[in-house]
């Protein structure tokens, strides 16, 4: 099952790369000197940072409750 999944994924990736090599699609991620790729990377980093902050916030919230009950 796993082998099947990996091989189909591989085939899909292969076909995708071949497609993109043949024809330039009107893909927003490849236009304008690929600046959108940088924007996506930065957005990912900031989203990750915010997720981290949210979890930290929750953890501190739990600690506050612990201290209150003690």
């Amino acid at each position: 099952m796993l082998r099947f999944a990996i091989s189909t994924l591989f085939l899909l990736l292969l076909s995708a790369t071949q497609l993109s090599a043949q024809t330039e699609m009107a893909d927003i991620m490849r236009s304008n000197g690929k600046i959108y790729v940088v924007v996506v990377v930065l957005a990912t980093i900031f989203a990750g940072l915010f997720v981290y902050l949210f979890f930290l916030d929750r953890k501190i919230g739990k600690m506050e409750k612990e201290v209150k009950t003690n």
Binding site: I35, Y36, V38, V39, L42, A43, F46, A47, F50
Partner: peptide
């Protein structure tokens, strides 16, 4: 997040 996206575009 708006700044990061709109700041570039």
């Amino acid at each position: 997040l708006y700044t990061v996206i709109a700041g570039f575009l």
